[in-house]
Design a protein around this nucleic acid. Structure first.
Lengths: 226, 226
DNA sequence: GAAATTTCTTAAGATTTCTTAATAAATGAG
DNA sequence: CTCATTTATTAAGAAATCTTAAGAAATTTC
């Protein structure tokens, strides 16, 4: 599970990050609302901890903006303990409101509570549906892939590579980038592993693997789906 | 929407009731945990406000008991503002924790936030009925399972796993996801426990467990019913 | 409190999937 | 066109995942 922490006070962000990492959550950090919205569209985020007082775009505005398209849990963070602010925040779509200073363990407990609620109700996967790119369709809920209506059986890693590329249509990923995203670690083995997987995927989704219709190479840079 | 308020202090119950009624919520009142559990099984309740310090059955024990069968939002109420108590309550399955004395408007805002989360994620409307997948039918009302008209006896855990998968037909659940949903806690024991349960379910519902017709594995990802 | 049932743990075996390494083909620069 | 570099192909051994079985621990039933 990945958690996005947004606060202009870097010390606070770092200290929250330490506690959440200790619970094996993935952590992303942002220091203002605009970057947070960008980070949201580029990463898989399951919960947001959002400070209210921030430059550029404050927490409430950020919350309203993101609620237009996303339904993930948001815990607001604020130095203001005034009830009016809490009510405003909760009404704007927040799932919880924690006032500074806070006990990190309590925050972690609230994070877990929100994620439990979200996951048991099947919130994850709800917003990911089917990605369609001409004849190719990737169902991120059933983890299935179809080409021209025909089911295609991919192995787990093959599927994850294809989903990554399909989710970011026409964006080019280097072999190392693919490795980082799919394996969640740095690539130390070389690019060949990726090349082999790419070939296997092509064998399964392309009519003619020699002339890929979907999974294309960009010479010297990487691969993309288009 | 109906809200159950549970506190041994009748004045507090009444004052909360007034505020919630003002927001057009239906209100049920109980003054101890035992009555609360009874009220739950007899009425349609969408959210519970639960005091911790109570005679007979305290709030935490009541919460744990009701979480065995129900997943509705619970807001704990307590005079104790100590962090350890909050963490205990949230870990036990509460969705929020409010310390007395509290601002009624804040409580109402938190109620609304929880109900919003619950309803948008489809917590309500997940009504009981019969789920049929070709020859397999799962009666979520009686908690019974039939295969080709024949009754099948599943253990409680087996049933809950099957119901989860049947409710979300063809959606793939990882072992950890199944664990989170059925046990309501993080999986720390490893995936093998799930695998064993899956085998037992297959033994009971599949004609030939080697070639599962209903409960299928998705290699490297998880299981699904299809 | 004993028996039966359910749940969990452990481990070996079967199967699928991944990585490696060696070779071949394609590409773009000079 | 030729060469250096990048990507593609192939096959086989290694690694990971799933299945099966059996027994221990916990829980429930009688």
């Amino acid at each position: 599970m990945n958690i996005l922490i947004v606060d202009d006070d870097r010390e606070i962000v770092d200290s929250i990050a330490i506690f959440l990492s200790g619970e094996n959550y993935g952590v992303l950090k942002c220091y203002n609302g605009i970057d947070a919205l960008a980070a949201l569209s580029e990463n898989e985020v399951h919960l947001i901890i959002l400070d209210i007082m921030m430059p550029k775009l404050d927490g409430i505005k950020t919350l309203i903006k993101l609620r237009e398209s996303r339904n993930i849990p948001v815990i607001l963070l604020s130095a203001k303990s005034e009830d009016a602010d809490k009510i405003l925040g909760l009404t704007a779509g927040a799932d919880d409101y924690v006032t500074k200073p806070f006990n990190p363990s309590e925050l972690v407990a609230r994070v877990k509570s929100q994620l439990r609620r979200y996951t048991t109700l099947g919130g994850i996967g709800k917003q990911n549906g089917v990605i369609t790119i001409s004849g190719l369709s990737v169902n991120t809920e059933n983890k299935t892939v179809k080409v021209d209506g025909e089911d295609v059986r991919l192995t787990p890693i093959e599927y994850r590579i294809l989903e990554l590329l399909a989710r970011n249509r026409s964006r080019v990923f280097s072999a190392d980038e693919i490795y980082r995203n799919v394996w969640n670690e740095e690539n130390v083995v070389g690019d060949n592993t990726i090349a082999v997987h790419i070939r296997h995927i092509r064998e399964k989704i392309e009519i003619n693997p020699k002339e890929p219709k979907y999974l294309k190479v960009v010479w010297g840079i990487g691969y993309k789906v288009d």
